[in-house]
Amino acid sequence: MAGPSDAGAEYRGGTRGRRVAAALSLVLGLGLIGGAVAGAVINHGPRDEPPVVDGSPEAFAKARQVWRETPVDQIFPRTVRGAAGGPGGADKAWTRIGVAAPTGCTGAFDPLLQRVLAPAGCVRLLRATYVDSTSTTVTTVGLLVTSGEAPAMRALNQRWTAEHLGERGDLLPKPVAFPGTPAASFGDPQRGSWDVQVSADLPFVVYAVSGFADGRAVPDRQPADKATADGATTTPAQAGLGYDATGLASAVDDRLHATVGALLHPTTPGTEK
């Protein structure tokens, strides 16, 4: 898989179409090069369907292989569209500008969030950064592949919900900057809003953190739950940074569930692995 400096090149220059075509060969780990997906549409809501896996260690072990066996475009689509996904019901669209090499989790989160997520463990961390269609905002999306089994993930999910941790202002993931792109200056001071989604039935945590493409710092940063609330007047709320974070995190989470379901239950043509 290409590292940050190589992946950033998919955004630059006048030959973007050829570079995007070349990006079809990028994969999340070792080996499999399959059909890539050109884009995604957000359709995220409460999960009423049965869990994707049965909670057994064997099923969790298979689900963890998604990062090795799935093309990068299938998890982090090159384009994502959100109908009515912005402030006031405005449509949103984002384009991927870089994919980071898979890493460990050290240094990927602020210390307090690192401690909260620690019980779930860390096998691999996958990240990509997007720019919105106006080149105004940038968002890093992360997929934490955990080593924890079903009881650990259920416990973390329940704690996250019961303690309203998604509403706290001190549990932040870190962004990934890509030189030569609108995210070139995307660092910790530029973080404006974020969303963390802890799976209850899969060994994954999906998150997104957003900021401005012009590199300005955001002193009144705010978690997405608050930045998307009615009547919110902070900078992240007015700029729609909470919608960027929630929209992209939800899109990746939805695709992740669908991909794992197809990997574990290949019952229809085109899903066999």
Rank of each mutant, 00 (worst) to 15 (best):
H44I: 00
H44P: 00
P46C: 02
R47Q: 13
E49I: 02
E49F: 09
E49C: 01
V52C: 03
V52P: 00
V52L: 02
V53C: 12
D54W: 07
S56R: 11
E58Y: 07
A59Q: 12
F60A: 11
A61Y: 01
K62A: 11
K62C: 00
A63M: 06
A63Q: 06
A63H: 02
A63K: 04
Q65R: 15
Q65T: 15
R68M: 08
E69A: 06
T70I: 11
P71S: 09
V72R: 13
Q74N: 08
Q74E: 03
I75R: 03
F76Y: 01
F76A: 00
T79W: 14
V80A: 14
V80F: 09
R81Y: 01
A83Y: 12
A84M: 05
G86P: 10
G86H: 11
G88S: 09
G89W: 01
A90H: 06
A90D: 10
D91M: 00
K92N: 06
K92C: 06
A93F: 03
R96G: 04
G98K: 05
G98C: 08
V99T: 14
V99S: 10
A100H: 14
P102L: 09
P102N: 04
T103F: 02
T103I: 02
G104Y: 09
G104K: 12
C105F: 13
F109D: 11
F109T: 04
F109A: 10
D110W: 02
P111Y: 12
L113T: 05
A118I: 02
P119S: 01
A120Q: 04
A120V: 07
G121F: 05
V123R: 15
R124C: 04
R124K: 15
R124Y: 10
R127T: 14
R127P: 02
T129M: 10
Y130P: 06
V131E: 08
S133K: 03
S133G: 07
S133W: 04
T134G: 15
T134H: 14
T136F: 13
T136H: 08
T140V: 00
T140I: 00
V141I: 05
G142R: 10
G142P: 10
L144F: 07
L144V: 06
V145T: 12
V145A: 12
T146W: 07
S147V: 07
G148R: 07
G148A: 11
E149H: 03
A152H: 08
A152S: 15
M153C: 01
M153K: 00
L156D: 09
N157D: 07
Q158Y: 03
W160M: 06
W160T: 05
T161R: 15
